Simulated scan of single mutants.
Amino acid sequence: MFTRIALFLATNLAVLVLAGIVMSILGVHPQQLGGLLVMAAIFGFGGSLISLLTSKWMAKRATGAYVITQPRNETERWLLETVRRQAQAAGIGMPEVAIYDAPEINAFATGANRNNALVAVSTGLLRNMNADEAEAVLGHEVAHIANGDMVTMALLQGVLNTFVIVLARVVGGVVDSYLSGNREDRGPGLAYFAIVMVLEIVFGLFATMIAMWFSRRREFRADAGGARLAGRHKMIAALERLALNQGQSTLPAQVAAFGIAGGMGQGLRRLFMSHPPLSERIAALRAAA
C-alpha cells in the first residue's frame, strides 16, 4: 500500500514538474497553470475514481453475476473454499465470489479495496476447465487484488487524463494564438476548441498506449502470483487451456481489462492490448521456473 501511494505521489510530482517546464517554455503564466491543473485534476481523476468506487456494483450489474452466499452445490462450495484459502495466503480479506453466465473461459477481479473485492468466473470456465486449471485462474485473480492492480490502474488513468487535458489546452492555446497573429486582446474562438478536441484525441491515444503497457505488465505479475498460490504447472496448464479455447470475450468494457483471457493483436494493434499474448505469458512462467 505504502509503495503504491509513494509511486502515485512521485508520478503526480513528475507530471507537475514536466507540465511546469512545458508551460514555461510555451509562455503560460503561473496563475493560468494553477487554475488549469486544478480543473484538469478534477475532470481527470473524477471519472477514474468514480469508476473505481462503483466497480463492483457495475461489474455485477453488467455481467448479471450471481454472488455465492450459501453454496448450492459442490462446485460453489469448492469455489468459496479455494478463494478463501488463496486470500489468506495472499494476506487480503475474503473477496465476494460470483458466477456469471458466458460461453467463453474467463474470470475477472475488481473492487476499490483489496479487503472487499470481487472475484467472478464464467460458466464457460466451470464447464471447460478442470479443478487444477480453475484453481490457477482463481489464484491469478486473487493476485490482482493482492497487488492492488485496480487501484493502481485507476490512479494511473487519472494522471494520464489530467496530463492529456492540460497539454491539449496549452498546446491548443499556443497554436490558436499563432494562427490569430498573437493578438492578446482576442479570446479563444471556435478554432481553439476544435484544436483542443483534436489534440485530446491524439494525446488520448498515446495515454491509452501507456495504460495498456502497464496493464500488460500487471498480467505477468498476476500470472506469477497465481503460480505461487496454485502452483506453476497449474498456471501454465490454465493458460494453455485458454490458448486452445481463445475467442472473442463477452465481458463488458469496464471489466474486460481485468479478465484473465486477452485478445490477439498484430503490429500497432498490440500497443492497445490490455493483455499480452498467451504464448508470451506461458513462456515467461516457464522461464521463471
Rank of each mutant, 00 (worst) to 15 (best):
M1W: 09
T3E: 12
I5V: 15
L7W: 09
L7V: 13
F8D: 10
N12L: 14
V17F: 15
V22T: 05
M23V: 04
M23W: 04
I25T: 05
V28C: 02
Q31G: 12
Q32N: 11
Q32I: 08
G35L: 08
G35Q: 06
L37S: 06
V38F: 12
M39C: 14
F43E: 08
F43V: 15
F45N: 09
F45W: 14
G46V: 02
I50H: 03
L52E: 03
L52C: 05
T54I: 10
S55H: 00
K56V: 15
M58V: 13
K60R: 14
K60V: 13
A62F: 12
Q70G: 00
N73M: 02
E74H: 01
T75S: 11
W78M: 10
L79G: 01
L80F: 09
E81Q: 11
R84P: 00
R85H: 08
R85W: 06
Q86N: 08
I92N: 01
I92P: 00
M94E: 11
P95A: 06
V97S: 04
A98Q: 00
I99Q: 06
Y100N: 00
A102V: 03
E104L: 02
E104K: 01
A109I: 10
N113D: 13
L118C: 03
A120R: 00
G124N: 05
L125I: 01
R127K: 14
R127V: 00
R127A: 15
N128E: 14
A131D: 15
A131L: 09
L138Y: 11
H140F: 05
E141N: 05
D149N: 11
M150A: 14
V151C: 01
T152V: 12
M153I: 14
L156K: 10
V159I: 15
V164D: 02
I165W: 04
V166I: 15
V166D: 00
A168Y: 03
V170A: 06
V171C: 06
G172Q: 07
G173P: 01
G173H: 00
V174Q: 11
S177E: 08
L179R: 08
S180F: 12
G181H: 04
D185C: 05
A191C: 07
A191V: 14
Y192H: 06
F193Q: 06
A194N: 07
I195K: 03
I195W: 08
V198F: 15
V198G: 07
E200W: 04
I201T: 13
F203R: 03
G204V: 10
L205C: 12
L205R: 12
A207C: 11
I210N: 01
A211E: 02
R217M: 15
R217K: 15
R218T: 14
R218M: 12
E219M: 10
A224H: 03
G225W: 06
G225R: 00
A227C: 07
A230M: 07
E240K: 13
E240C: 10
R241T: 14
A243V: 02
L244Y: 07
N245L: 14
Q248T: 13
Q248Y: 04
A261N: 08
A261W: 05
G262M: 10
Q266V: 13
R270C: 13
L271W: 12
L271K: 02
E280L: 12
A283Q: 05
A283H: 04
A283E: 09
A284C: 04
A284E: 01
A287H: 04
A287Y: 02
A288G: 03
A288S: 07
